[in-house]
Design a protein around this nucleic acid. Structure first.
Lengths: 257, 257
DNA sequence: AAATTAGTTTTATTATATGAAACACTGTTT
DNA sequence: AAACAGTGTTTCATATAATAAAACTAATTT
């Protein structure tokens, strides 16, 4: 008997299994997954071979371990295509990347996190690894702040349940302080996050709007803090705002008079 | 009692449901999915809300229809990160894109198809939409031909079961002819496909090798045939080969003396 | 306002996934 | 070499968990 409003057990189990795979441990065996998920090893084995049949995981016959399969990339392609943003943005992102030589990301809201849906990596040796699909917190990233800044107060409140996690000593954990920070972001048109998520990592972000004037995403420039200080950010901000405006325009947004 | 060696029913059903979503119909309702998959509407409804709980689909409360969720992008990010190719290639792809102003793709083998894992779109109005994760046939695409050309004869035979589907009048459907075409590709180091997959679309591709000398992917330049004729391809080929070599080098491959 | 269609929830039923145990396979240790 | 430990797969009886039918909402159309 499935619990009240709970999800189908199998779906949960599959999701748990797939979540075991990470960039750090891309190839894992049945027993490891079994231990991590608490599933019986025979169940794990059977579920994995089912997933393999669908191309969602792939088995390495050498090591008899599994890794995530390419069929997932196929599905993700459909998701990203739907958002449509990527195509609209690509040219402008490349310009921004060429100009700044730093990492460029586009992120959208997903629950109480933001997810990178596009990233162009800096050619510099020291760079922020903004992996596609990576989930980041809202309150201490530049893209997250933009998304927070332009949502309704209720929505924001809902997503900012104290205590705000302090990722570094610089993370803003006080709600009032963050609120002010966001107000400033709205005023100047872009948000900044200096060492707030990762010590040594700083970024600035600007909103992307669709035809409906809704902020649907944020575009950011990130780099090591020694290359992304307040002065440098100021300089980059003009380019960032220009890019975000051009992308928005392509989505049908035009500032009203 | 689960069939002989068959996959878990639920996994199959979930896979079928998710496959219903496409770029053409990104938002679909319960009944549509129910009809498409042959599942009972109550089953479909329950499965969908389970998938929603995991972030694999998202419900539009307005229309009460579902679309694919962002959690899939997160998983796909892990897959792509694993392959590692994207980071190694990015800079070289951008150079290639800047140089040619055409669409650049990287594809890897997946069963008897090839899948795009990276693409930079041409700034031209007329362009090939090489969507991320898109699955393409092997025998009539430039990337597919490269992947075929550098696999063992058995493997190739296994993936080329006649009849080869003719996508256009120019598609090579004769096995012997294709074999010769592939031999030529090996000889000159790159493969070409002129109007073979899509009338008006042409491309050339070159192999990417890893430290183990294995061909693990192909990089391609695609564009409308009027911009990608035989002469133009010849000119681009040098750049393409250079890029493929540099990417391969970054993966630890160095041609032996 | 009645009728149609879509979506969700409830409930009895049984088909389906499950875990224990046996088996197969590798690599390691004595 | 033989015994062992550790992992992965398969079999099989059992009962859990998914199922379909029907009842129920809610929205849309006639």
């Amino acid at each position: 008997m499935p619990k009240d409003n709970a999800a189908t057990q199998t779906v949960q189990r599959i999701a748990n299994i797939l979540r075991c795979f990470s960039a750090g441990e891309p190839e894992i065996g049945v027993m490891q997954i079994s231990r991590a998920t608490g599933l019986h090893k025979s169940t794990t084995s059977r579920l994995l071979s089912s997933l393999e049949a669908e191309g969602w995981v792939a088995k390495n016959p050498e090591t008899r371990k599994y890794r995530l399969g390419l069929e997932i990339v196929n599905l993700a392609g459909t998701v990203l295509e739907q958002i449509g943003l990527r195509q609209a943005a690509q040219m402008h992102l490349r310009e921004l990347a060429d100009l700044t030589q730093e990492t460029i990301n586009i992120a959208v809201l997903h629950g109480d996190e933001c997810i990178n849906i596009e990233s162009i990596k800096s050619p510099h040796a020291i760079q922020y690894a903004g992996q596609l699909g990576r989930r980041n917190p809202l309150h201490c990233t530049s893209t997250g702040k933009i998304l927070l800044a332009y949502m309704s107060a209720e929505q924001r409140q809902q997503r900012l349940t104290p205590p705000l996690r302090a990722f570094t000593p610089h993370t803003i954990t006080d709600l009032a302080e963050l609120e002010e920070n966001l107000m400033q972001a709205r005023a100047q048109g872009y948000a900044a996050a200096y060492d707030e998520f990762d010590e040594g990592l700083s970024a600035i972000a600007a909103p992307i709007r669709d035809f409906n004037e809704q902020v649907i995403a944020a575009v950011s420039i990130s780099g090591p803090s020694f290359r992304m200080g307040a002065e440098q950010s100021q300089l980059y901000a003009a380019h960032l705002l220009s890019a975000s405006r051009r992308i928005s325009n392509q989505l049908g947004y035009f500032a009203n008079p």
